[in-house]
Structure formats: structure tokens, C-alpha cells
Design a protein around this nucleic acid. Structure first.
Length: 470
RNA sequence: GCGAGAUUAGUUUAACGGUAAAAUAACAGUUUUCCAAACUGUGGUCACGGGUUCGACUCCCGUAUCUCGCACCA
């Protein structure tokens, strides 16, 4: 996951953050206290957008299929979970810092050297450290330092129950995956699925990032959508390829431009040690090409680790071959917040309309927080308002729009169009004098082109639904 | 966590050791027969704590937070 592109438009991110706040999508966490780095609060429209993303995902990967079971596991898990997964040991890298040039290195990577404490002026420090006297040489400036590691643990630690001791330690989960692995046996016992089958979960995860950056991209609290798909050890490649295609299909579902999504085959040596193959799906964010989704073949690493730690029997009995074995797993992993960020940056558009600069979100109707807005042409004509409210209330009840319909009579018509443009509403419906005097129907205005079409009232719902996939 | 910078209205930005301001956005009203019009009115601001001073938004110190860079990202 290296940054390969420099930001093409350095201020685009700022504009997206500003719009998100101005229009009620996303605020900084704990803002009245000056904020809390790495946290973001979703407001009305942001929640709607995010919920749409999650609903579309759940539909494609759970309800539209027969072979994937839904899960919503607890965020707090028995600490042994994280010992088995390797997070307790692997998630914290001991670091050392050069006292002179302040460069930092992983403690297990630095070159250990013999040194005379007096000669290097380290005697006081060495005495403080008593038994653990070791030295290393900075590869940048050559300074000899005492090995003095600092622990960086990425997991948020907490205590479960009233007593704070080692046995009560737990962590806010740093990934959702383990909640599924530990329930593998339960799902097998409840549903008796045949391989291949999977489990899917949407939920929050927490990582104590040293430096959260880039709006929603790297935050300390975030949401994941993950699938663990269990397969026979032989022939995992087919499922891997199937999910690779499904992931691109999902990208289309939420209206992202697939041309901005690039597959990166993660080479040997850069993959996690348990993975035999990993593809990163990278997206062209305003700040560069960075990871959006991941697809990994994790072998039987996780289930085997849990079987070893828990002594549970996590083998699958294959009735065809009469064999018992631990299934292997394909893991498609999606970041919810990263999807929202990708959608916002993909959708943010500026153009000119009516000689004025216009900002709008070119959201796919499937993810738009408001599907349609209804206006009276003028707000000081009660008959227009009455009719517009009728049209609005009818649409509000239409299942096709899920209630994502707004009424607005504030300011003038142009102002209302611009407001809806900024939140990405695909269609605005206006009631004018011809509607009530001639029964000529309403006008439907398209967000992207600004073009209007007159549609009879009784065909309005059908006309709008035709353009929506929800 | 280190280094640098920043913090004045929802937003963008002024000014000043002595009553804090503009634009824009918001809200209400008038008006308006389709793209941020106009008019009238309204509300809203010096991050926090200490010090110097007759008096601090302004100067000094500290704290917090944010931003950028470094490092980190199983």
C-alpha cells in the first residue's frame, strides 16, 4: 500500500470536508471540545448515505445469495481471540528512536553493536536501565544509542468487569473478521452448510492509529464489511476469482467509477505471513491512489489458530470424501467509511449553470440520501403549496423511495435546486401554475443536466422509480 | 510520539493594549411564474488556563485541539 500518486487537486479534499459539514453529512468527532483526531460523526445525510451502502452490500452478499450467513458479533471478545489471531503480539511493534537525528526504527531491524558506555556518554542512561544494556547504531547518522524500546500497541485496551487485572483485559476489536471465525462452529451446527459457504458481517472496528489522516480514510474508529468464505483447500482459486468479480460489481452498485479502481497484486514478502494471495483494490482518492478494499486467501490460518487456542474442534466433515479437515478461507474485506469517502470524492463536481458556479454531488440514486425533492414554484401562493404537499406526501409513502423524499419551500426555486444539488438529490419535482390550472402535471428536473421534463401526476412515481435501483 | 505552524460568527477572512468587523451562509417577512435576484428585519464569534497591565482578543507562559512533515499502518 504505497502512495504512488501525488494529490492532483490538493484542495479538493478540503472542499469535500467542508461540504460534508455544511450540508450535514459528516462532522468532526467531539467538535465542541476541539475535536478528537481519528473520529468522525455522521449526521442525517451521511447516515443515510452510509446506510444505503451497507444495505446494498448486505443485499448483494447475503440476502441475494443462499450460501452466506449473516453475523453481528460483539465488539468485545475474549482476549484469547486476539492472542490466537496474533494481534496481541503482532499488532504492537517495538520501536527505537535515535537520540540525535530522531529517526525511528523497528527494534528487531536495527544493527546491534558492542559499545563502551563511558566513551559514548551513555553511562548514566545505561545505569538507569540496569540489566538491559544493549546498543545499536543508527543507520542514518551513525550515532550509538542505548536500546530503549517504546511499545506502540494499535489495539484499544479495556477491562471487562469490576476487577482490573490481566485476566479481565479485553480489546475493542481491531477487525471484524475474528467475530466470524469464533462462530464458525456455531454456524455449522445451526445451518449445516456444505462447503463452500461463508459468513458476512458489518460492524465497527478500532485501531489506535498514531496519525489518523485524510478525512475518513484513516480513522481510529471505522466500520468494515467483511466476508469469510470457507472453501475446500483444493480449488480455492475459483472462489477467489468469483469474489474478485463480485467486488467490481459492488463498486458499480454504489455508483463508483470502476476505472478509478485499480487492482494491485500484493507481491510475496509484502503480504501478511498467512496469506497466499492478496489483491488490494485501490481507488483514486483526491490525495492519491490508496487502498479501498482487499481480497485475501488466508488459508486455514485463522481457524487453525483458534482450534489450537480454544481446543475446539473446528474441522469440517466432508461427506463426499469422508475426510475431516479445517476449511480454507477467502476474505473479501470492504471499508464502509472508505467507500463513503470514495463515493463523495467520485461525486463531487463543479460546473456552471445559469452563469453561476454550481457545486453538486453526482451520486448514484442507489446511494443518494434524498431520492427526490418536491417544491412549490412559489412559496407565497397557498394553492401551490397545498398541491406540492400532496405530491410530496404521496411520494413519501412510496416504498420505492424508502421515505427519502423532501419538501422545501424556502427561498426561491433556484436556491432550492442548488441545495438539493449539493446533497446529491437526483430529481427535483416542481408544482407550478400549469399543474393546478391545466392539470398539466409536474416538472421533473434532472440534477446533472438541469433539464426539465413535464410528467403527468399519476405517472410520476413510475417515472422516478424507473431511474432508481434501491 | 518528535518537529514546525495554526486557532476571531456555520464558513472565508479583517482590525485593534481601551465598545470586535465584513462578506457569505442561516432564520423571519415582503416580493418573485423555474436555477444561489432584490428589499426589510433577526440571531450568532475572540479554543482553554494562568501571568504582565488601570485595562488583554491583542503581549508572555502553559495546556488542549487541529493541520503539515517525519515515523507508523499487523
Amino acid at each position: 500500500m504505497k502512495e504512488t500518486n501525488k494529490a492532483p487537486a490538493p484542495d479538493l479534499m478540503d472542499k469535500i470536508v467542508a461540504l460534508s459539514k455544511r450540508r450535514g453529512f459528516i462532522y468532526r468527532g467531539s467538535e465542541i471540545y476541539g475535536g478528537l483526531a481519528g473520529t468522525w460523526d455522521y449526521a442525517h445525510y451521511g447516515v443515510a448515505l452510509k446506510n444505503n451502502v451497507k444495505a446494498i452490500w448486505w443485499k448483494r452478499f447475503v440476502t441475494d445469495r443462499e450460501d452466506i450467513y449473516g453475523m453481528d458479533a460483539a465488539i468485545l471478545m475474549n482476549q484469547k481471540t486476539w492472542q490466537a489471531s496474533g494481534h496481541v503480539s503482532g499488532f504492537s511493534d517495538p520501536l527505537v528512536e535515535c537520540k540525535k537525528c530522531k529517526q525511528r526504527f523497528r527494534a528487531d531491524h536495527v544493527k546491534k553493536v558492542p559499545a563502551d558506555p563511558v566513551e559514548h556518554g551513555l553511562i548514566g542512561k545505561a545505569l538507569e536501565l540496569k540489566g538491559s544494556i544493549a546498543y545499536w547504531e543508527c543507520e542514518d547518522c551513525g550515532t550509538t544509542n542505548v536500546v530503549n524500546t517504546r511499545q506502540f500497541n494499535m489495539m484499544f485496551k479495556t477491562n471487562v468487569g469490576a476487577v482490573e487485572d490481566d485476566d479481565s483485559i479485553s480489546y475493542l476489536r481491531p477487525e471484524t473478521a475474528q467475530g466470524m471465525f469464533v462462530n464458525f462452529k456455531n454456524i455449522v451446527d445451526s445451518f449445516h452448510p456444505k462447503l463452500p459457504f461463508g459468513m458476512a458481517q458489518i460492524g465497527k472496528a478500532f485501531r489506535n492509529e498514531i496519525a489518523p489522516r485524510d478525512f475518513l480514510f484513516r480513522s481510529r474508529e471505522f466500520e468494515q464489511m467483511e466476508i469469510e468464505y470457507f472453501v475446500k483447500p483444493a480449488g480455492w482459486e475459483k472462489s477467489f476469482e468469483d469474489f474478485r468479480k463480485e467486488m467490481h460489481a459492488f463498486v458499480g452498485d454504489v455508483g463508483l467509477d470502476d476505472k478509478k479502481v485499480h487492482e494491485l497484486e500484493v507481491p510475496d514478502g509484502e503480504r501478511a505471513h498467512y496469506s497466499k494471495r492478496t489483491i488490494d483494490f485501490e481507488f483514486d482518492y483526491p490525495f492519491g491512489k490508496k487502498e479501498l478494499y482487499g481480497l485475501a486467501y488466508r488459508t486455514d490460518f485463522d481457524l487453525s489458530a483458534h482450534a489450537g487456542m480454544s481446543k475446539a474442534n473446528l474441522e469440517y466433515y466432508d461427506e463426499e470424501t469422508k475426510e475431516r479437515y479445517i476449511p480454507h478461507v477467502i476474505e473479501p474485506s470492504f471499508g464502509v467509511d472508505r467507500t463513503v469517502l470514495a463515493i463523495l470524492s467520485n461525486a463531487y463536481t463543479e460546473d456552471e449553470m445559469g452563469g453561476e458556479k454550481r457545486t453538486y454531488l453526482k451520486l448514484a440514486p442507489s446511494v443518494a440520501p434524498v431520492k427526490v425533492a418536491v417544491f412549490p414554484l412559489l412559496k407565497n401562493k397557498p394553492e401551490l403549496i397545498k398541491k406540492a404537499r400532496e405530491v410530496y406526501e404521496a411520494l413519501k409513502k412510496e416504498p420505492a423511495f424508502g421515505g427519502a423524499v423532501e419538501f422545501d419551500d424556502n427561498g426561491n426555486i433556484g436556491k432550492r435546486y442548488r441545495r438539493q444539488d449539493e446533497i446529491g438529490t437526483p430529481y427535483c419535482v416542481t408544482v407550478d401554475f400549469d399543474t393546478i390550472e391545466k392539470g398539466a402535471g409536474v416538472t421533473v428536473r434532472d440534477r446533472d443536466s438541469g433539464k426539465q421534463e413535464r410528467v403527468p401526476e399519476n405517472e410520476l412515481s413510475k417515472y422516478l422509480s424507473k431511474h432508481h435501483t434501491i
